[in-house]
């Protein structure tokens, strides 16, 4: 008996323990190389002054925390940061909006599948197209928005040209596809709602808002959590809409951190890798708050069951 065990190869002996790791290895490796190490590289790079070009006599210069000091006094950074907060807060409107559309569509009428698809449509089309459509919608001369405002006697407004309105205009455009996304999450969630509980609620006299709040919503908690996660991530990834609709303008008033980082480090006129990395680090720290929260609640969830 002893001999047979000894003769088995090391792999055979440890098969059960090792195999999962073998399967995970490629993923882990790529995750380390393309996700984890760039995070630390960014931290490192943010302490340097470097124009991103290779070549001889062009080494990065260590400047300590000076990039961060400059951020503190940079008014463009402040504007971007505030805009990021606006995005995070207002983008969450997609969750209730998605919920109500889902409740509205959660009925059995002929052709409801078609209506559901139509409502989901904005999420399917590219953000670039969404941006272009809304740019035309907002166009101060030929846009539909001013036409509609005209009917009710409100003056023309240049949504994307007004530094005070521009961010709200872009967020609104972003809400269009994001609402559709939340809607689909809630529609799936509603399928799993227990009819018996609703029945029980009815017998106890619950209806309307009370039914929604005390019976339906608690059962939709998993869907709400996912909707919250994707919306927060969506808000922090708001790069493409800004790039296509305003290019950060007018005069930089619609920039968010990710766009400002791109502009400083990678765009046509951006040669400040260190400064860009410092902006990226700040953005990462903001994201870290949410990521930690997500991970923590998921962990708690798993423990709970």
């Amino acid at each position: 008996m002893d001999r047979t065990i000894a003769r088995k190869s090391w792999y055979r002996r440890n098969e059960i323990a090792v195999t999962p790791w073998l399967f995970l290895a490629p993923g882990v490796l790529f995750f380390l190389v393309y996700v984890i190490s760039p995070i630390f590289q960014s931290f490192h790079l943010s302490l340097f002054e470097w124009n991103g070009l290779g070549g001889e006599n062009n080494a990065a210069k260590f400047v300590g925390l000076r990039n961060y000091e400059e951020l503190m006094t940079d008014s463009a950074f402040e504007v971007s940061l505030i805009n990021n907060v606006k995005w995070l807060v207002l983008y969450l409107l997609a969750i209730p909006a998605g919920l109500f559309i889902a409740l509205f569509l959660n009925q059995t009428v002929t052709g409801i599948r078609l209506y559901k698809s139509l409502f989901f449509f904005p999420f399917v089309i590219s953000q670039i197209v969404v941006g272009l459509v809304f740019t035309w919608f907002y166009d101060p001369r030929f846009g539909l928005l001013n036409e509609i405002l005209g009917w009710v006697g409100l003056g023309p407004v240049n949504m994307l040209g007004d530094p005070d309105l521009v961010t709200y205009g872009i967020i609104f455009a972003g809400l269009w596809p994001q609402t559709a996304y939340c809607m689909i999450l809630y529609l799936t969630g509603l399928n799993a709602v227990d009819p018996e509980q609703i029945e029980a609620g009815r017998l106890d006299g619950a209806k309307g808002w009370r039914m929604l709040w005390h019976v339906i919503l608690p059962q939709l908690k998993p869907a709400t959590f996912i909707a919250f996660v994707v919306t927060i991530i969506g808000a922090l990834r708001s790069f493409d809409l800004i790039s296509i609709m305003t290019n950060g303008g007018p005069f930089g008033q619609s920039r968010v951190l990710s766009f400002y980082m791109f502009e400083k480090a990678l765009s046509e006129y951006g040669f400040r890798m260190g400064y860009g990395a410092a902006i990226a680090v700040v953005l990462f720290l903001i994201m870290l708050i949410f990521i930690s929260y997500f991970l923590w609640s998921m962990y708690r969830e798993e423990r709970g069951h």
Binding site: E268, Y269, G270, F271
Partner: peptide, 13 residues
Amino acid sequence: AEMASVAMQGFQE
């Protein structure tokens, strides 16, 4: 490059 980007933004403003 950097002067140009800051300045042209200022001109627009």
